[in-house]
Simulated scan of single mutants.
Amino acid sequence: MTRYLINRLLVSIPTLIAISAVVFFILALAPGDPMGEFASNPSITAEVRENIRRSLGLDQPIYIRYFKWAWAFLRGDMGYSFQSRSPVFELILQRLPTTLWVVGVAYCLSVLVAFPLGVISALKRYSAIDRVVTTVAFLGFSLPTFLTGLLFLLLFSVWLNWLPFIYNSTLQVTDWGSLVEQIKQSIAPVSVLVLYQSAVLMRHVRSSVLEQLDRDYVRMARAKGLQQWIVLNRHILRNALIPVVTLVGLEIPKIFTGALVTEQVFRVPGIGALLIDSISTSDTPVVMAITFIYAILVAIFNLLADLTYGFLDPRVRY
């Protein structure tokens, strides 16, 4: 196990370095100028703009800027935003609670919905339950989140006037009434994410369980007279969950980095919305920090998913 961990870390570290370099150079060479907002301001002269550019280090070569950024990131310094002049770390911390609340609740509900429905659909294949579950999963997987988000806004906010139009990030939960308002404004974005994420998970759970139902060891377990729930728990699920664990491990980092489209539709001030705004304004430090944090989380949770294989399937040896 220790050797396996060391080998994976030796692979992950160069991969993260390569990702950081590629993203940094792409952002540095992309069209757009972080100082563009000052160009239209007649009170700011070209000399002042050049001084600001020099203070931000934008006058240095790209490779020097990259090495400075990488060294600062290793020390926990993510730099300062070109637009707000605030530390990037503080900007992310301000948006993180909203993202964890909306995206985290949505993903937990998706897992709770997808796993039992996927297993039931596989065990009752070709039945009415299976047809209903697969149809709902197909619709949830096929419809893009921006479309379902707009439909939710039209139905529940415009026509029925049940839910608020825009997410209020300044709302503080101090009493029962404010808690109800917080839940009401979270229903629409959470529901949109649950519809899509549970559909994706449900399809994988169903297909993985179906692959195991006709295996020889499952037939042998049933021939021995074991009860259905014992066969399902000990022989089917532990093998069927291996590909599902990989999918879950790759999806968990989104809980920390936000849902880009959904946050834009419902004006949820999460990290995903911060990333979109930073890309549109060429705010490189913010984009780099969020992107690289996402890459680190993917590497970590992918490693955890691989380690979980040994628990689910004793045949896996590291």
Rank of each mutant, 00 (worst) to 15 (best):
R238L: 12
S169T: 07
A122I: 09
L232P: 08
V200W: 08
T308W: 02
I92V: 13
D59Y: 00
F266M: 04
A221L: 12
T262I: 04
I166K: 15
D277H: 03
V190F: 07
A21S: 13
P61C: 04
T145H: 06
I290P: 05
R238Y: 07
L304W: 04
F25M: 12
S282F: 01
F165V: 14
V132W: 11
S86H: 10
L210D: 06
L10K: 09
Y126V: 06
A137S: 14
V231L: 14
Q60I: 01
D214W: 10
D306W: 00
N302L: 02
Y107L: 13
V286C: 02
Y63N: 01
G36N: 10
R95M: 04
Y4V: 02
R49I: 13
W159C: 00
Y217D: 13
F156C: 01
P61H: 10
K254M: 13
V200A: 09
D306T: 05
T145W: 04
V261D: 02
Y63A: 07
L237T: 01
L213G: 12
Y318S: 08
R206K: 14
Q185M: 14
E251V: 12
V88Y: 03
V218Y: 15
L163K: 04
P164Y: 12
C108Y: 09
L151M: 15
V261G: 01
N239D: 05
G76I: 06
L27W: 03
F138N: 13
L250S: 11
R65A: 02
P314W: 03
Y63D: 00
G36K: 06
R75D: 00
T98G: 03
L123Q: 11
G140P: 09
I13K: 09
D59M: 02
L150N: 14
R219S: 11
T134Q: 15
I279C: 01
W229M: 10
T308V: 14
Y167Q: 03
I183Q: 02
I64A: 13
L210Q: 12
E251I: 10
P253R: 05
P14Y: 04
E181C: 01
A299L: 06
D277F: 01
V119I: 15
L96T: 07
R53N: 09
I187E: 02
I187H: 07
L112F: 11
